[in-house]
Design a protein around this nucleic acid. Sequence first.
DNA 1: CATATTTAAGTGTGTATACACGTATTTAGA
DNA 2: TCTAAATACGTGTATACACACTTAAATATG
Lengths: 153, 153
Amino acid sequence: MKRNTKVNSGKRSESVQNCTCFNLRKATRAVTQLFDEALKPCGLYATQFTLLAAVSSKENVAITELSKALVMDRTTLSRNLKPLQKSGWVEVLPGLDKRTKALSLTLSGKKVLKQAMIHWKEVQNEVVMTLGNGNWELLVDNLSSTVKKLNPY
Amino acid sequence: MKRNTKVNSGKRSESVQNCTCFNLRKATRAVTQLFDEALKPCGLYATQFTLLAAVSSKENVAITELSKALVMDRTTLSRNLKPLQKSGWVEVLPGLDKRTKALSLTLSGKKVLKQAMIHWKEVQNEVVMTLGNGNWELLVDNLSSTVKKLNPY
DNA sequence: CATATTTAAGTGTGTATACACGTATTTAGA
DNA sequence: TCTAAATACGTGTATACACACTTAAATATG
């Protein structure tokens, strides 16, 4: 007798439980909370730490250019910069091209990034250890190649 | 002569480029955009599809209970349900316990989920194929175990 | 050189996310 | 039983994210 509890072809990937998007978002929530917590003493969120680090390594970068590197919508980046400007950590100056802007860290921004780096290393190490170094490397490699393969830019 | 371009101990995990949180969020952005695009004809976002599917498989579940299963803050779930209620896809009724609520899909919600499932399978298959089945399985396994290991619930 | 196209950025709008704080109900303990 | 603690949920607030639409500047094209 055929049981009718069968909801898919049997392929693992066809179960909603294994939705790539859901699993990514779920893991992102869990990890982001850890990093946010770790960076709290510095008064910035994980996403903001990422932005500071990105601007630091690409002084005078324009918004659209940086947004492509971060695989982030241009308008999202623009708006995510707002709280960092407000805190006086990021400066947005006119670029050479009159259309563009040049992003840079203020002195205060460099200081907070330096402090944050310490806390970041701690939580990053904690996560690497919890996952196991091999698993962590596999995860990061997989995430990178996923972005490379799917990212339209 | 010692070069002073060295910014970390040499451990791969200590480079901000390899921040677990950043890489997860970046991949999530890329993947979410694909799923959002694929589900657009049904008028719902990837996150909303996930919610409909979750409620469908757990009729009369309470908000906090579901939020734990999704590794999502209770208040986030509450608010994410709002647009689904507004669209008439999810019903939020009083639960047995006077404190709790009982979530369920409306008839209309079941219909839209059924349609969305078709589009979801397409994009899910596309992603699995693009990554390669082996890589995809590795990724999902790694994400699951990451959540299991880090999730405080 | 004038105009069409492309490129860089901003605004409006709506969803996703979570913490801090507050209220109501239930349960546990004296 | 009466009260303290635990549980379920809502609201205020702030950040994260992206699409559609708009404006301004640079470049390409006739």
